[in-house]
Amino acid sequence: MSNEDQEWADLLSPRRRGLLRSGGGLVAAFAASGVAAATTAGKSPWGYETYKEATIQPHSVRPGEQSLPTKPRAYTDIKSYHAHIYFDEDSFHKAALLHKWAAERFEVELGNWNLEPRGPHVTPSFYFGFSNAQLQVIVPWLQLNSLGLTILIHPNTDDPRADHLYYTLWVNRSQPVNAYGMNKPGPDEPPVEQIYPNTRPSVKLET
Rank of each mutant, 00 (worst) to 15 (best):
Y51C: 01
A54W: 04
T55L: 05
T55M: 11
I56F: 00
Q57N: 04
P58Q: 06
H59Y: 04
S60A: 13
S60L: 06
V61Y: 02
V61P: 06
R62V: 12
P63F: 03
P63S: 03
G64K: 03
E65N: 04
Q66Y: 02
Q66N: 15
L68Y: 12
P69E: 11
T70D: 08
T70G: 09
K71V: 02
D77F: 08
I78N: 01
I78D: 01
I78E: 02
K79S: 11
K79G: 04
Y81I: 00
H82Y: 07
I85A: 08
Y86N: 07
Y86F: 08
E89Q: 04
D90L: 15
S91W: 02
S91I: 05
H93Q: 08
A95G: 10
A95Q: 13
A95D: 01
L97N: 11
L98D: 08
L98P: 07
W101I: 11
W101N: 15
A102F: 00
A102K: 01
A103T: 05
E104G: 00
E104A: 12
R105H: 01
F106V: 00
F106K: 02
E107M: 03
V108H: 02
G111R: 09
N112T: 03
N112K: 15
N114A: 07
N114L: 09
N114F: 15
P117R: 08
P117I: 05
R118S: 14
G119D: 14
T123I: 14
S125M: 12
F126N: 15
F126Q: 12
Y127E: 06
Y127L: 10
F128T: 09
F130I: 06
F130E: 12
N132S: 10
A133E: 09
A133Y: 10
L135Q: 15
Q136F: 14
V137Q: 04
I138G: 12
P140M: 03
Q143N: 11
N145L: 09
G148P: 05
L149P: 12
L149I: 05
I151K: 12
L152P: 08
P155M: 07
P155Q: 05
N156K: 06
N156E: 00
D158A: 15
D158F: 13
D158I: 10
D163S: 13
D163I: 03
D163P: 10
H164Q: 14
H164S: 01
L165T: 09
L165V: 09
L165H: 11
Y166K: 07
Y167I: 03
W170N: 03
V171G: 14
V171M: 08
V171I: 11
S174A: 10
Q175Y: 00
P176Q: 08
P176F: 07
N178C: 07
A179P: 09
A179S: 13
G181W: 06
G181K: 02
N183Q: 10
N183Y: 01
K184Q: 03
K184W: 05
G186Y: 00
